[in-house]
């Protein structure tokens, strides 16, 4: 088994699924790169982050399809292709661009199976990038998973590491429903042991990354690493935090969170999106409605503020939840 980056793990999942199933196609801006452009160079980019690099050389431009800059066309084409038998993986470069293709997702893709009485399906994946930290400003830095999670009919996946990224993407491609696969910009260089063989990680199964009995910390995507740093910091005082990564927000593994809260009685949720109508609010609601009597302290939500993502590096650093804030929240819930 080799160590691979998050980027390599996603690339490998795409490559192996395209080799396994001729119906798997990739659609997006610059996913092949340069085609039709003035230079005429094929495979120069592999998408803005180089994730699909090398695939056009293996599978050809009919299966790795470069598109014009039209998100509504990319996603609409993927939905239609999925309805008519392909398994497209469409790339929405930045999740912030969902505004121009949202009807295709929430009114079409998410509802086809339901409105056709199960006789039609939409086996598509929309890959997209989330997250702040790269000074990409307010329109390229948002963490918008709550919007997709809100829509019945969409599955929402947020891998926090390379191993999960490969297994969850293969599961997403083989799934018969539309899956929103959200990659965090800050994680592409994250390295883990990743098996060379294909494997699937089922949706709705949280990963308990660190065992502990004193406090439950639920964190998503890049915030998992922030939570782990905080857990390490409080461990010096003998506090054992249990760090849970739900992996998917829809479906959400409620059981693992509730079992942990039943054990610890204390819950801190760390999420990079703003707090209103967020996953942090959703999981807090889960705890107070289904585990109220287990709770020994108020639930803490450590989130970004309810503002656009600032461009100024100094302000962006303040915007993103940090390990210190999580550490302080853990100390607060332990005091009550």
């Amino acid at each position: 088994m080799a160590k691979k980056t998050y980027r390599q793990a996603i690339n490998e999942a795409l490559r192996q699924e395209m080799a396994r199933d001729a119906d798997v196609v990739i659609i997006g801006e610059d996913v092949a790169g340069g085609q039709g452009g003035s230079a005429g160079v094929l495979d120069a980019y592999g998408g803005v982050m180089g994730v699909t690099k090398g695939l056009v050389g293996m599978f050809g431009p009919e299966r790795v399809i470069d598109t014009p800059i039209s998100e509504s066309a990319i996603i609409g084409m993927a939905v239609g292709a999925a309805n008519t038998g392909l398994r497209p993986v469409a790339e929405l470069m930045f999740v912030d661009f969902l505004g121009v293709c949202f009807d295709q997702l929430f009114n079409q893709a998410a509802k086809v199976r339901y409105m056709f009485g199960g006789k039609a399906k939409t086996p598509m994946v929309m890959r997209s990038m989330i997250g702040a930290g790269l000074c990409a400003a307010a329109q390229h830095s948002q963490t918008l998973h709550p919007i997709f999670t809100h829509v019945p009919g969409l599955k929402v996946v947020m891998p926090s590491g390379a191993y999960d990224a490969k297994g969850l993407l293969i599961e997403a491609i083989r799934d018969d429903d539309p899956v929103i696969f959200l990659e965090h910009k800050a994680l592409y260089e994250q390295i883990e042991e990743v098996p060379d063989e294909p494997y699937m990680i089922p949706f709705g199964e949280a990963n308990i990354i660190l065992d502990g009995g004193d406090v439950t910390v639920v964190a998503l995507s890049n915030m998992v690493h922030v939570a782990l740093a905080a857990a390490r910091s409080v461990a010096k005082d003998g506090v054992r935090a249990e760090v849970i990564d739900p992996r998917t927000t829809s479906p959400l593994d409620e059981d693992t969170i509730l079992e942990s809260v039943a054990k610890t009685g204390r819950l801190v949720i760390v999420d990079e999106s703003p707090p209103r109508c967020s996953l942090a609010a959703d999981i807090a609601a889960l705890a107070v409605t289904k585990a109220f009597r287990d709770l020994k302290a108020p639930v803490e939500m450590i989130t970004a503020p309810h503002t656009p993502v600032p461009f100024a590096p100094s302000l962006e650093r303040l915007y993103i939840p940090g390990a210190d804030a999580v550490t302080q929240a853990v100390r607060r819930v332990l005091q009550s």
Binding site: Y163, P195, E197, P198, Y199, M200, I201
Partner: peptide
Amino acid sequence: LRYKRLDG
């Protein structure tokens, strides 16, 4: 778990 998830 990692073993059981492998294809095949």
